[in-house]
Nucleic acid binder design. Structure first.
Length: 399
RNA sequence: GCUGGGAUAGCGAAGUGGUCAAACGCAUUAGACUGUAAAUCUAACGGCUCACGCCUUCGUAGGUUCGAAUCCUACUCCCAGCACCA
């Protein structure tokens, strides 16, 4: 029974397991209650679908009865990462961390079960132990690593080659994070492939301080299998946030590239691999990817908003984009009189500015009561229940 | 402390006296097509104007010039190398 579940966890979204998959398998099958943890950055309140992968893995471990610990990197956040030039090295206050954590929990709570009283998910703040270390402790920790090991890290190597600055303090990040593992007495750490170096540093420290093998599970980052581009990138503006409204979430899921459908199924849903493979088969046999993507979108929305909302969002999507009908809920504006069309678009918040409005009209994006208007100088007299449509997604109604 | 380099629209990045509201890429928006908010193609992408055009933007503040993102001065911030230190 558990064996099946164990295979399920190990079968997806995992890039590499150190030292080996067999070791983790053995440990999981031993029946021992493991201490499994993951670190998070409290400066970011935005959690997207790409992050969900790791939480789903944690959830699966949790369901197997293991102890799940989330380490909030508040100490790290207080110091600031010098490699991130954009970060102001602004110290987050306790209060700010607490606030961030709350929004964070709200989002993650859709995946991890924080209400489990028997085996509660624990939150720990690493400032608790890191700020208490004495200098000699730090030297002691540092003595487990050589400079050669440090500069082998690819991002460090790259910067040395490019003659970009590499701060000594950056060497301490893996040490600090690694020390977390020791304090937590961790058996397993989960994190994205970008965290591999830090996680492995923890592995060394655990071996030396606790004389045990901490297993490191590095998880795949969600990317477009065709282009290798990150699917969920805040800077590219392509992320789907976990607290997105149902309709938005559904639409954004539908705008995922077709090539990524299977990948997202694997990494972000609970669907069985058998089922996912079946979809993969259907698509390669020529089934319309859109229909599979509809299933995916519904799954995702229902994971975060429930079955009912998901169905509503799907109906809404089909209604608007397939049947090209009006949505059930349209923003209403109380307006009376005659307006220049661009002005009207601005009034109903369907255009950012007059210039923007004119552009949209010229592009043929504007419909009033179902009739396309391309004349920028058109005068429109409003009446009750007038429908103003801009593009495919912006609707407004006159009250 | 010294010496160089840099700061450009949401992001990245061209532009070194007029033809610059500023190339290009990403993101965004619209149109066509469709299988969809996919892909592809086309276009737009500071503001005001029906429009000719006008106004505000290239780190900040001044200046030179008929004319400045481009030249000069000061300032702020960032980066690199060197020196100092042992």
């Amino acid at each position: 029974m558990n064996k099946v579940k164990i295979q399920e966890v190990l079968s997806r979204s995992i890039d590499t397991i150190y030292p080996s998959r067999q070791d983790l398998e053995k440990l999981l099958e031993s029946g021992k209650k493991l201490r499994i943890y993951m670190g998070i950055d409290p400066t970011a309140t935005y959690v997207h679908l790409g992050h969900a992968t790791n939480y789903i893995i944690l959830k699966r471990f949790h369901e197997l009865g293991h102890k799940i610990i989330v380490v909030v990197g508040d100490f790290t956040a207080m110091i600031g990462d010098p490699s991130d030039k954009k970060s102001f090295r602004k110290r987050l206050t306790k209060k700010e961390v607490a606030e961030n954590l709350k929004t964070y929990k709200d989002q993650i709570g859709k995946i991890l079960d924080f209400s489990d009283k028997k085996n509660p998910i624990e939150f720990r703040f690493n400032s608790q132990w890191l700020s208490k270390l004495k200098f000699e402790d730090i030297i002691n920790i540092a003595s487990h690593f050589t400079v050669q090991q440090m500069i082998e890290r690819d991002t460090f190597e790259k910067r040395i080659k490019e003659r970009k600055p590499l701060f000594v303090s950056e060497f301490f990040y893996p040490l600090m994070q690694g020390y977390d593992s020791v304090v937590l007495d961790a058996d397993v750490e989960v994190g994205g492939t970008d965290q591999t170096f830090n996680m492995l540093a923890g592995r060394s420290l655990v071996k030396s301080y606790l004389d045990k093998e901490k297993i490191v599970v590095s998880t795949t980052l969600l990317e477009n299998p065709l282009t290798g581009e990150k699917l969920m990138s805040k800077s590219l503006g392509t992320g789907i946030a976990l607290n997105e409204k149902p309709n938005e979430m559904f639409g954004k899921a539908m705008s995922l590239p077709d090539e990524a459908i299977i990948q997202v199924f694997i990494d972000c849903t609970y669907l069985s691999m058998t089922q996912i493979d079946q979809y993969r088969g259907e698509m390669s046999e020529g089934k319309n990817p859109r229909d599979i993507k509809l299933i995916l979108a519904r799954k995702i929305v229902s994971q975060f908003h429930g079955q009912h909302e998901a169905e509503k969002a799907e109906a809404n999507f089909i209604q608007i984009f397939q049947k090209k009908e009006l949505p059930d809920e349209i923003r209403e504006f109380k307006l009376d009189g005659t307006f220049n069309l661009p002005q009207l678009l601005v009034e109903v918040e369907s255009a950012d500015s007059m210039s923007d409005a004119r552009r949209l009209i010229k592009a043929g994006a504007v419909e009033v009561d179902g009739a396309k208007i391309t004349d920028v100088s058109a005068k429109i007299s409003t009446h009750k229940d007038m429908i103003i449509k801009v593009g495919k997604r912006r609707f407004a109604k006159i009250k």
